[in-house]
């Protein structure tokens, strides 16, 4: 099964690498959002520094909906989804593979976003380990919930608009948890970031299990 997971993940990443959608559209979009937040908060350094964690994760949420849309679109075009089923790959391997691919893209964007908030918002990182752990753990949860809901909206006519409505409220705990953990890592608010990391891990685990159980039903019936 691990082989199949790797196959699906590499397939998606290869498509992304060749089409350059992540690099040429999603990354500039993320940068744009950072700049717009700067305008919205009147380039006020103290305000930006306090709000950095929240703005960072809001941006990640937006980017995540784009990445999930993209990951879904890849399967819909030319009946690729059916081909994937016919290839005899377990639905759970498809789910995990697509989750890995989405997570990988989100992590790339986050590396650039961290650089962005350091340069644009004047953030300074106090605890790199906590920061990196938060990025990885939160991303697993986002990608798992994202790839499950992506498959869910795949056959829906208005899927571009339905996806954010479904995905963003479910991701509320990630936004809260990751923002708090970042607050600790950036030293802007005195909270216990590691405790929040535990909550993020719980969210990730729950949604991985849920996706693994429900993905097959969705793939075969919708």
């Amino acid at each position: 099964m691990l082989r199949d997971v790797r196959l699906v993940a590499l397939k998606d990443l290869r498509i992304e690498w060749r089409s350059r959608v992540t690099l040429s559209q999603i990354v500039p979009f993320a940068a744009l959002v950072l700049v717009l937040f700067g305008f919205a908060l009147d380039a006020n350094r103290p305000v930006l520094e306090t709000a950095t964690s929240g703005l960072f994760w809001i941006t990640v949420m937006f980017v995540a909906t784009m990445a999930v849309q993209r990951s879904t679109a890849v399967e819909i075009n030319d009946g690729a989804r059916r081909a994937l089923l016919l290839a005899g790959i377990e639905p759970i391997a498809v789910f995990l593979g697509k989750t890995v691919a989405i997570a990988a893209q989100l992590l790339v964007v986050q590396v650039l976003l961290v650089a962005g908030v350091i340069v644009l918002y004047g953030a300074s990182v106090g605890q790199w380990v906590l920061l990196l752990a938060t990025c990885v753990v939160a991303t697993v949860g986002i990608a798992a919930a994202g790839s499950l809901l992506g498959a869910l909206v795949a056959g829906v006519r208005a899927r571009e608009t339905v996806l954010p409505i479904l995905l963003l409220p479910i991701l509320a705990p990630v936004l809260i948890g990751a923002t708090r953990a970042f607050d600790d890592a950036l030293g802007s608010v005195a909270v216990d970031g590691w405790a929040w990391l535990g909550l993020l891990a719980g969210f990730g685990a729950i949604n991985l299990v849920l996706g693994a159980l429900a993905y097959g039903v969705l793939l075969e019936e919708t």
């Binding site: 869910l152 056959g155 509320a172 705990p173 909550l199 429900a214 039903v217 919708t222």
Partner: peptide, 29 residues
């Protein structure tokens, strides 16, 4: 969202379950 009846029911059911399972963690967070 329309479309195939059974598929819509299945999609909605998965959303219902995702909501139910995630609710405790939303509450906790």
């Amino acid at each position: 969202s329309g479309g195939d009846e059974e598929a819509t029911s299945t999609r909605a059911a998965v959303v219902g379950l995702v909501a139910a399972v995630n609710l405790p963690i939303v509450n906790r967070s």
